Simulated scan of single mutants.
Amino acid sequence: MLDIVIQAREANIVPGFAVRRILPYQLRRMVGPFIFMDHAGPVNISSKEVPDLDVLPHPHIGLSTVSYLLSGNVTHRDGLGIEQVIKPGEVNWMTAGKGISHSERFEDPAMLADGALELMQTWVALPERDEEANPSFMNYKAEELPVFTEKGIWMRLIAGEAYGLSSKVQTSSPLFYVHVVLDKNTRFGLPVGHSERGVYVVKGKVEVNGVSYARGQLLVFSVGVDPVITAKEASTLMMLGGEHLGKRHIWWNFVSSRKERIEQAKEDWKQGRIILPPNDNHEFIPLPEDQYRPGTEPPPNTLS
């Protein structure tokens, strides 16, 4: 029934700011087109630490970054000149394509107190035909996204198609991404019609086939299996998956179907050929390749 259970690992985005990293995982690199997944927060720090948490401008190629907040706010700035404060329930969907840089800043000190920041960050690999597309950015408001409610169930379809709903978020391949809140003892099924499916436990505890799973675990299910998920306590889940795109290489913040394209991206960033955000161009994250042995992958210095 279960292909694998992935336990989130702690990863430092910047000193003092650790997140739960779920994907990629050594034994399971992707779920559908999703190749990266981080869960940050709830963050509870003093306001004097805020400047140290900012994620400086950094590059991406060959993917779409997907930012979704459960609480708090983050300011996004990118090489297209876009500045967008994302709020809970909204989606920031940035397609890197042939290359883009962006930053993420925490500019509301009060927001970081009392666990008021919690966000999910994923990357969606692009089909080969779109890997060199022009970069783009879209923000979708919470009221633009489909919501379904029933006794014991609240659900928002962030992207793709699931449960008979369709999101207006523009995607490049078949996928689904769903935010689900369940009351205790509520039973819930996975969406059908997708070859790869995963359920991440953000909060609470769920049971599948008599086995309990808790916060920080991603359950990846076999093709053709339709499990029933029972909330053993009030729980928040993120469901994601879709159709597999084929093998992808990932190095730092770069994703591509071709290793040589990643080598080009490294050089492009070193030589300044990926433009910094015009309204956030005084500092950036340098290429980390000199800090790692040949053939190893430095961890992403990014929330998205």
Rank of each mutant, 00 (worst) to 15 (best):
Q217V: 09
Q7P: 02
N134V: 08
G99V: 02
I22A: 13
V206G: 11
D108P: 04
D130H: 09
R187K: 08
F188R: 03
G216S: 12
I158R: 04
R187N: 09
S222Y: 06
L112H: 00
A116Q: 04
W123T: 05
V201I: 15
H282V: 15
G241R: 03
D183W: 06
N301M: 05
R9F: 06
S46F: 05
S195I: 10
E132F: 14
L175P: 05
K141T: 14
D52L: 11
A159K: 01
L190C: 09
A162F: 13
A231W: 10
A110T: 07
E207D: 14
P24N: 11
V208P: 06
S304L: 00
A133R: 04
W123Y: 10
R187P: 00
V201F: 12
P277Q: 05
G160I: 10
V14H: 00
I158T: 14
E233Q: 14
K270E: 00
S256H: 05
P298N: 15
F106K: 00
N281H: 13
A18V: 12
V192G: 12
R187D: 09
N301E: 04
N281L: 08
T65L: 01
P294G: 10
L23G: 10
K266T: 01
Y200P: 06
A214L: 11
E128N: 00
P109C: 10
P59G: 07
Y200H: 14
F106Q: 03
E233Y: 12
E161H: 11
R273A: 11
V31L: 07
E260H: 06
I262K: 00
T236R: 03
T95S: 10
P59S: 07
A110N: 03
T65P: 02
Q26M: 08
A40K: 02
L287C: 15
S212C: 11
F148C: 10
H76M: 03
D183T: 12
L56G: 01
R197P: 02
Q84S: 14
G41Q: 07
L119V: 09
L237I: 15
F17K: 02
F34N: 03
E150T: 10
S222T: 15
E143H: 02
N301H: 07
V74M: 08
L218E: 11
T171E: 06
V202W: 07
P299I: 06
A125H: 05
P135F: 08
P127L: 11
G164A: 12
E196S: 11
E243W: 00
D114E: 06
H60L: 02
D226S: 15
I250F: 01
Y68R: 03
A265F: 00
V14S: 01
L70K: 04
P51E: 04
G16W: 04
P288H: 14
L157Y: 08
R28L: 10
N185D: 12
L80N: 00
L112Y: 04
Y200D: 11
V181L: 12
K205C: 08
S212P: 11
I82D: 07
G224C: 10
D114K: 02
P109W: 00
E267Q: 09
S47L: 08
R29K: 08
G81W: 03
W93N: 02
M155V: 15
G97P: 03
V55Y: 01
